[in-house]
């Protein structure tokens, strides 16, 4: 992909983000932060590339540490979001 297509994806995604986030109910703002935390750890993709590649031992180790850190976030972030969301209940009638 060339720079312009990537930039287009980015700009359009910013607009999508703007509208999607405004539609989030304020009661769920804490889970919103927890889940955005988890998904921003998609940076693990870069960490995996570094950890998988041969060539530079130091880059590999940096990659492995990054994989571990991002994994804390991914598993922890989704799990704590799920835990919070499970607590939101309606009135029993």
């Amino acid at each position: 992909m060339d720079f312009i297509s990537i930039l287009s994806i980015f700009v359009l995604a910013c607009f999508v983000g703007y509208y999607v986030v405004w539609s989030v109910t304020p009661a769920l703002h804490t889970p919103l932060m927890a889940v955005t935390n988890a998904i921003s750890s998609v940076i693990i993709v870069g960490a995996l590339i570094a950890a998988a590649a041969a060539g530079s031992a130091s880059a590999k180790w940096l990659g492995l540490i990054a994989v571990a850190l991002a994994s804390v976030n991914i598993f922890g972030g989704f799990a704590v979001t799920a835990r919070m969301l499970a607590m939101y209940k309606k009135k029993d009638r």
Binding site: F10, I39, S40, I49
Partner: peptide, 21 residues
Amino acid sequence: TLHNSAMIITGALVGSSGAIL
């Protein structure tokens, strides 16, 4: 840097989410 659309979309979402909050 990685030309990765998943990361760009996520980054934009999280970035706007934090900014709006």
